[in-house]
Amino acid sequence: MRRAALPSRRAARGFTLIEVVVALVVMAVMSVMAWRAVSALSTSRERNEAAMERAETLQTLMRQWELDLREVQDSAVLPAALSFDGNALRLTRRRESGLQLVMWQLRDGRLSRWESGPVTQRDALQDAWFRSQQLSAEELRAMPGLEGVTGWQMFFFRGNSWSNAQSSGDVVDSSDAAASSPGQTTGSAKQRIAVPSGVRMQLQFGEGSGYSGELVREVAVEAPTS
């Protein structure tokens, strides 16, 4: 009777310890490479989304900036329909239900926009002017704004040239005694500062803000008198 053939020693043995270790190392390397690829893809997507969000914020604010300037309305109440003190730009803007005071201010590296409600009374417009001077940093931070701004300059187009917005502007006569309203420092009670025909804004951004270089915006101003 023939004895059944025994399996060879080579076929019967399993994986050696070295083979198992090598397989684990290969799997670990492949896992690390896959994780890095996924991580890089995720990081790239987050950066792209952040850049798109910053660009959208900037575009939205610049559209609002241009809209504000194109709807400037001389109230004949405040000394100027458009004024800049080096830190804040204030303007009166026409709305369907009255006039609105708008202020753009740079504080703590953030350019913020504040607006009052539309008003129809002289006293209410003066109150809004006072209110714009008393806003706290917390209130401004709650308003729409742009982070990372380190500085800004403003120029008005008067006559046939650009000049510093803080320089003296043309004075126009007014028969409204309300021209002596709060904030007027020059001129008589029957004079106001003429509205410039254009505004140029230059913004500088800090490192890490996501913006580079300098942003320049020029807007033509057409301000019909009230």
Rank of each mutant, 00 (worst) to 15 (best):
Q191M: 11
V38M: 14
G14A: 12
A81C: 10
S161F: 10
E19Q: 12
R3H: 12
T16D: 03
W104N: 07
A37G: 15
A189S: 11
E53I: 07
G117H: 09
S188Q: 04
L125C: 03
P118L: 00
P224S: 03
T60C: 05
Q202M: 08
T185S: 14
M1W: 12
L82C: 05
E56Y: 11
L125Y: 01
A76N: 08
T225R: 12
E147I: 09
R131Q: 15
V22K: 04
A220K: 12
T43S: 13
G187D: 01
A88Y: 03
P118W: 00
D108E: 13
A80V: 10
L101V: 07
A34I: 08
E139L: 09
T186W: 10
Q59R: 14
D170W: 05
R95T: 09
E71V: 07
N87L: 09
P144L: 04
S188F: 07
V199H: 04
V119F: 00
D85C: 11
S83Q: 14
A165C: 14
W114P: 00
D127M: 10
L125V: 02
D85M: 06
F84V: 03
L140S: 01
R200K: 15
L99D: 00
S136W: 06
R94S: 01
V77R: 00
V216S: 13
E49P: 01
R141Y: 07
F155Y: 14
A220S: 13
L82R: 06
R200W: 11
S75R: 00
S174C: 01
D74F: 02
G206S: 14
A128N: 06
Q100I: 02
V119D: 02
T150M: 10
G98E: 01
S42F: 06
I193D: 02
A28I: 02
L146D: 05
